[in-house]
Amino acid sequence: MANYIHVPCGSPEVPRLELTVLESGYREGAMNLLKELRPHWKPEEITTQVFTDGITNKLIGCYVGNRMEDVVLVRIYGNKTELLVDREEELKSFRVLQAHGCAPQLYCTFNNGLCYEFMQGEALDPQHVCTPKIYRLIARQLAKIHAIHAHNGWIPKSNLWYKMKKYFSLVPTEFEDKLINERFLHHVPNPQVLQAEMTWMKEVLSSLGSPVVLCHNDLLCKNIIYNEKRGNVKFIDYEYSGYNYQAYDIGNHFNEFAGVNEVDYRLYPSRELQEQWLRWYLEAFKVYKGFSMDVSDTEVEILYVQVNKFALASHFFWGLWALIQAKYSKIDFDFLGYAIVRLDQYFKMKPEVTALTAPE
């Protein structure tokens, strides 16, 4: 699928360093990277700080001094994440977004990760993304990404169903730990049920007419950096970026209003908030595409229906993802519990959103 993503001519090449950074000895590995990236830094003056918010990778910030003006982020890929992430697609998406001013500078890749520029600002929480001042910025930034033409004449196709099918094939059938296995068997639907839901989703959602655009696909709160001084937001972490349905990317973001560590779906945005958000988004999307920014109530209503139906696919996708992580990840996070929450919300939400009908 990465062939669909066309990196603009003249974009700087990204150096590849034949180095491996061990999680257990990350400082030594980071120092070896910095010898190449920041040769003028004195090793004894370098501070390394672990960022613990990620539930896929380990992220380390490296800098000299106290002001953190120049920070090199070292991201070490999590165990077996190559099963979940297309690294070629991630790299191309990162370079495209960087070329359009939507991503930080990418310094290099290495055997099990990459290094990039630290973006100044505050990583958001659920209480931030529902405030008009901030969600308008988010809507416009997402519209900017969705409007990027990065397919070199190809007709872009969504890889959602391909990835979902792949994830389904990787879902464990049992766990070694007896208590975990009992919890898995009791709370997670059997493979036949999951397979039937995937078939239903592909048939129903593919027919909604949502455009296929370049998507972030993982717009959780912590992946949004708000710079109050500059009055803007930027998105980080492009591991799951690629071509997908416009409505999926927005529905996925709305699901993330509920948070990750303590998920609360009472925080899912109300219809009124969604309609305001979607109007801001559509106005910006039209402008970035070179059209009049006039948006009708019917356009908002159609996108509202599409978004809430594709939110189902987001729950299902991350439910499968979390089941795989529960098997392989070494990160201290209750992935099985997270999978159960996402799949439960899928089945809870399904009757309500399938009843929605778009205006003709």
Score class of each variant (00 low, 15 high):
214 L>C: 11
150 A>M: 05
201 M>D: 02
186 H>T: 14
187 H>F: 12
219 L>S: 04
185 L>S: 08
176 E>T: 15
139 A>N: 02
201 M>G: 06
198 M>G: 14
210 S>Q: 02
143 A>M: 07
169 S>H: 15
215 C>T: 14
153 G>Y: 11
177 D>N: 15
137 L>V: 04
206 S>K: 05
188 V>H: 10
137 L>F: 06
162 Y>M: 05
214 L>D: 08
193 V>P: 00
193 V>W: 03
222 K>Q: 13
163 K>H: 09
160 L>Y: 15
154 W>R: 04
165 K>E: 10
207 S>H: 09
210 S>N: 01
158 S>F: 06
213 V>M: 00
197 E>F: 00
202 K>W: 06
221 C>P: 03
171 V>W: 06
148 I>L: 13
204 V>L: 03
191 P>G: 02
158 S>H: 10
165 K>H: 11
192 Q>T: 14
147 A>H: 05
153 G>A: 01
207 S>I: 06
141 Q>V: 07
215 C>V: 12
157 K>A: 14
204 V>Y: 05
209 G>D: 03
155 I>W: 00
144 K>C: 02
143 A>W: 07
194 L>M: 13
175 F>Y: 14
174 E>N: 10
162 Y>T: 12
154 W>N: 08
179 L>V: 15
198 M>Q: 11
188 V>W: 11
188 V>M: 11
